[in-house]
Amino acid sequence: MITPEVTATATAPGRPRGGLVNVPKRFLPVIATFVVFVATFGVGSVRYEGFASGQVMANLFIDNAFLIVLAVGMTFVILTGGIDLSVGSVVALSTMIAASALQAGWPAWLVVVTVLATGSALGLAMGWVIHRFGVQPFIVTLAGMFLARGLCFVISVESVSIKDPAFRELATGSIELPGGVTITYGVVIALVTVLAAVYVLHLTRFGRTVYAVGGSESSARLMGLATTRVKVGVYVISGFCSALGGLLFSLYMLSGYSLHAVGMELDAIAAVVVGGSLLSGGVGFVIGSVVGVLVLGTIQTLISFEGTLSSWWTKIVIGALLLAFIALQRIIVRRT
């Protein structure tokens, strides 16, 4: 939280400069997020014995692998100035489809393909409605949220456990890193998703158009960019990521349940905002969202280490953190 104040003194009045040690201004929110992450983790390391271990760090990734994937998809949507409220429900639907299809004896690979296809198809449908009929993304994805959650209940109201050996092996298997730290396959999948997203956003035409649409849709269209493809495409990506996140979540819980992941869309949005993206679109980085997820995860770990604090403090702290980041962004945007 020191960064903006330092910038304030470093900037001569009326002559906005690049910022702290010539770091481009657009990186400031991400750096601030990273500083907050280091600070919260630092507080934990100082206060609790055994907090600053590699395994606690690895657990952050293990426990939040699905949220990282969701936040990646949400970042794409938010970069275009949209929003996707359906992700939590799509996660639940994915766990439900996976669990019940496995129970019915489908092979694991077919289940994975089906789940990913369903998520992408839902995203495609929502994106198409948003684009074709000009209905607000907020409303369309809200309807998508009801629909996906409802479809879960149609499949089953009971919790379905996953007994498929391939899934169980994926879920319980672990990879040992140097230093005796172990991670799950889910973490690897999440990190690969992040890398793929970074590649798409920064090194492809599609990615550049995402930023352009977020900056100004009409300008982007007038420049001859494929805005339609991008506007629909980001919802497909978000739907795909939600389905993938759902698969990771089903590995994490080893069950499918209609009430899984209630309100997870808010966690994903909070992570993206804490990660320094502007909800109006055009500004933000996938890496920021990942660090945002880690910040939320660290807060939860801190509160569980503390032990005497009740779980509701998590919500209050996340709310306060959201506020701090919004205020920070206002300061940066005003100075531009």
Partner: peptide, 24 residues
Amino acid sequence: PEITLVFKAIVVIAVCLMQAPVGI
């Protein structure tokens, strides 16, 4: 009761599409 939400979603989508700025 399991499909309440699906029903709700369908009605909401229908009404919203009827009122959409451009469209049906």
